[in-house]
Every structure is written in structure tokens, then in C-alpha cells.
């Protein structure tokens, strides 16, 4: 009985590696510079941009440079990396990867299931061909990545600002509502919570650690959306 079950486990083990034979770099942050083409300053400023982007939109954008694509097309590497890391929120699947492979001279924007309507293949292709590749061709990898990130992060806020401009009355209404909510939250945190926390003896320390702690994927999935290019 046990040996039969063990046999089944081995059969399953034989089946799965065929799909996941790639070695991926560790998800050390929002910028994973495994090919070492970015300066520490750039990594830091990109990281801040990406963190701000997630806070504003909940979309997770991760920049990754890889020393090798391990002999698979960048399209195959891309969606499997996205799934392995689980970039994007679970259920929303709103992750985006900007993958750069300097050795193979390939770049790809990999889009999670949930953002395929926002970052269509055509838009991704335009960002790659029109914004990233001109810099890459002149050897300026860093600038290409910076511009690519600002094109991706700017894309949605652009769409948001145009839709806001179409409904000015609603905009004012929501601003007042937001202000009201903020005031309410401030009131609760300043006045109500200190009393209750004193009584229960708990503190806020545990809550804030998740904000300053390491970055991790939210469990989003990918289905091959996006675009690639080479130089």
C-alpha cells in the first residue's frame, strides 16, 4: 500500500518537472537585477516608483534582468516566472513584469490575466518598440528600463486622468468624500483607538511591519499576454 502510494508520488514527480524545469532568480524586491546592468541608485529610485505604483493602483510591476533565458523563448520564460513569483494580487491577477535579457538581446512586457485589457499587446508592443528599444540600441540599458517603467506606470494614470476630466462634478464629490473618510480615520486613530489600545494593552507595532518588510508576490497568474522585442 505504502509502496504503491510512493510509486504514485514518483509518477507525479516525473510528470511535473517537464513543465517547470527553469531556474528562476529569487524575488528579492521589486527590481531584481540578476544581470547586473543597473546602478544601486537606479534600483532604489525604480523601487520607489514601483512601490508608489502599487499603492496607487494595487498593480504589482516588477523589473527583472536575467543573465540567461536558459534556452527557452522569452515568452515561455516570462509567464512561468510570473507564475512562479505570483506577481499581482490573487484573484485580480494584476501583475506586470518587465523582463530584460541582455545576453539574448530580448525584452518582454509580461501582463497578468487581469491587466490584459489595460495593457493590450498593441500598447506593450508600442512601449517596447517606441520607448525601450531606441535606448537599448544605443547601449543605454538603464535609461531604456527607466523610460519603460515610467511608460507602464504612466499609462494607467493617464487613462484615469482623462476619465476624471470627463466627469468634473463626480471628481469634486469624491474628493469631498475622500476628505471626509480621511478625517474620520484620523479621528478614530487619534481619539478612539488610543483608549481601546490602552485598555487591551495591544500596540500598533505588529501592523506596520508588513509595510516596511520585504516585497512578495500576491499570488497572481499569467496567461501569455504582453509583447516582446529584440535589438
Amino acid at each position: 500500500m505504502r509502496s504503491l502510494k510512493l510509486g504514485l508520488v514518483f509518477v507525479l514527480l516525473l510528470v511535473t518537472p517537464a513543465l517547470a524545469a527553469l531556474n528562476f532568480p529569487a524575488l528579492t524586491g521589486r527590481v531584481v537585477d540578476d544581470a547586473h546592468i543597473l546602478s544601486p541608485g537606479t534600483i532604489q529610485s525604480l523601487d520607489q516608483t514601483l512601490a508608489g505604483y502599487e499603492q496607487a493602483t494595487t498593480n504589482q510591476l516588477v523589473v527583472v534582468t536575467v543573465p540567461s533565458l536558459q534556452d527557452v523563448p522569452i515568452e515561455t520564460y516570462g509567464y512561468q516566472l510570473g507564475r512562479a513569483w505570483g506577481i499581482g494580487q490573487k484573484g485580480k491577477n494584476n501583475g506586470v513584469l518587465l523582463i530584460v535579457a541582455p545576453k539574448e538581446r530580448k525584452v518582454r512586457i509580461e501582463v497578468g490575466y487581469g491587466l490584459e485589457a489595460t495593457f493590450t499587446d498593441a500598447i506593450c508592443s508600442q512601449i517596447i518598440d517606441g520607448i525601450i528599444l531606441p535606448d537599448f540600441r544605443t547601449g543605454n540599458m538603464e535609461q531604456g528600463i527607466i523610460d519603460g517603467v515610467s511608460a507602464i506606470t504612466g499609462g494607467e494614470s493617464l487613462a484615469a486622468s482623462t476619465s476624471k476630466a470627463q466627469q468634473p462634478q463626480n471628481g469634486v464629490f469624491y474628493e469631498i468624500l475622500m476628505l471626509g473618510i480621511i478625517l474620520l480615520v484620523m479621528f478614530i486613530s487619534r481619539v478612539v483607538v488610543p483608549f481601546s489600545s490602552v485598555r487591551s494593552g495591544s500596540s500598533f507595532a505588529s501592523g506596520s511591519s508588513s509595510l516596511t518588510g520585504g516585497f512578495s508576490g500576491g499570488g497572481g497568474s499569467f496567461g501569455g499576454g504582453g509583447a516582446s522585442g529584440g535589438w
Partner: peptide, 18 residues
Amino acid sequence: FLALQSQLEGTENRITVS
């Protein structure tokens, strides 16, 4: 045409993945 071309590429890729 270029937009359609990139969409077709993306769709073929989605087909491969699914």
C-alpha cells in the same frame, strides 16, 4: 497593421500557454 500584428503574436502566445 502593426497593432494587429502584435495582437496576433500575443494571441498565438496565449494559445501556446493555454
